[in-house]
């Protein structure tokens, strides 16, 4: 794949990720437990990690977070998605790079979800300085495993589709 194609795919996927981020905020997952999210927007960087490599995945994630942050939310919500999102994709890239333990897309997606949660927990800890919020994070972590498996399955199909598509021209 030449770099023009790579950049074009990244641009389309960044737009897709922003749209998905915003669309997802209209689904009331909070009815299950406050703060619960499927994290569909993380399908995009994870797909790019497999198809285009870590540099593209991390850049797309950064642009998505900044753009979504400018479109909605306040400084605190921006910091939450920044630390959560960047930690998640960076750790996923590193884990995919090492060859000692090999995870499938689903495993990597679960790791991404857990890292996302943990980074947000530490952000909340710095803001609130109250260790008791760890209980709520434990509950959210249980949901993160489920969400990670679901987005992992979606990512698996989206990698297949993108690879097939990128070979077709």
């Amino acid at each position: 794949m030449n770099s023009t194609k790579k950049i074009t795919i990244s641009a389309v996927f960044t737009a897709l990720a922003i749209a998905v981020s915003i669309a997802e905020s209209f689904i009331p997952f909070s009815a299950i437990a406050p703060g619960v999210k499927l994290g569909m927007a993380n399908v995009v960087p994870l797909t790019l990690l497999y198809v285009l490599g870590p540099a593209y995945a991390i850049s797309v994630q950064a642009v998505r977070i900044i753009a979504t942050g400018l479109l909605r939310g306040n400084l605190v919500t921006f910091l939450f998605s920044l630390f959560g999102g960047m930690a998640s994709i960076t750790i996923c890239s590193l884990i995919k790079k090492q060859k000692r333990v090999e995870f499938s897309v689903i495993g990597l997606s679960v790791i991404g979800a857990i890292v996302h949660n943990t980074a947000q927990f530490f952000t909340a800890l710095v803001i609130l300085k109250n260790i008791n919020i760890i209980w709520y994070i434990a509950i959210l972590t249980a949901f993160a495993v489920v969400a990670g498996v679901l987005t992992g399955i979606i990512t698996k199909y989206s990698i297949k589709a993108l690879e097939k598509y990128s070979k077709s021209f």
Binding site: G73, N74, V76, T77, L128, N130, W135, Y136
Partner: peptide, 14 residues
């Protein structure tokens, strides 16, 4: 034991 949190506003009730 639960808490009510409004993270965007940095508010925690417990």
């Amino acid at each position: 034991k639960k808490q009510i949190a409004c993270l965007p506003n940095k508010v925690l009730v417990y």
